[in-house]
Amino acid sequence: MSEETKMKTSSASADAFVNGLIKENPTFVLMLGMCPTLAVTTSAMNGLGMGLTTTVVLVLSNMLISLLRNIIPAKVRIPAFIVIIATFVTVVELLLQGFMSSLYDSLGIYIPLIVVNCIILGRAEAFASKNPVIPSAFDGLGMGLGFSVALTCIGAVREILGAGELFGIRVMPESYVPISIFVLAPGAFFVLASLTALQNKIKRTLAEKGKKEEADKIQSGCSSDCMNCSDAGCAHRFYDSKAEGTIAEAATKAEQAPKAEAPVQTEQAVEEKKEEN
């Protein structure tokens, strides 16, 4: 490998890494993988555990998919990706069960559900299937760490408000009465709502200050949020590619449901993003 290509690879890797961690943070910016985000963030520790577990799966599956990207036929790539992801999830699940049983118990059913986390399939489809191994690994690492940071933040907020503790250590003064609803299900919704509102606020302030570019950056990715486009979102991206053979059908469907157009734009957005990088 010549010096120049080496430089290129390393800068591409660094870009991919930072991109996942900040610019396209999967939770706060792309709004992907909502189920685990809300379900397991009852404490900062659980959030971190889930985040790191997902990171491991994401890095490994990104690497393998990138290695196999020229071998897997385009038409069956989604089922192939799912098998690869499910394999790594099973491996990680068995390892956790064997060596970290307390984490395994507290995450429970959400570990096997990593398979259907849209972040992983989304990155496989959008990045790993089109890029060499090393940048893919770093993309997985960045996205995974971004996810971990977000989960830990939400978990920390919920744990501090709901139990007065952080990572199991008491941080609030003795007189603080824990608001236990924040550890329960409704609290998850409220915390995420506030954090998203905060993000909207920042976005608006930036836009008003005329830093249009900055604001656009924050809006990048899954055309701002996966849940709005999740009439489409991840699910549709997944489906669209699956039914490539039957595009005519998809077109009929698109007429029935205008929302089917959204994922196309999304994919374009992802493409453009990559060219920029």
């Binding site: 409704p186 909207n200 608006r204």
Partner: peptide
């Protein structure tokens, strides 16, 4: 303004959860 869209939906879902 900031709560329009997803945040207010999440708040609604939270109240429903209660």
């Amino acid at each position: 303004e900031s709560f329009k869209g997803m945040p207010i939906t999440l708040v609604t879902a939270g109240l429903m959860a209660i």
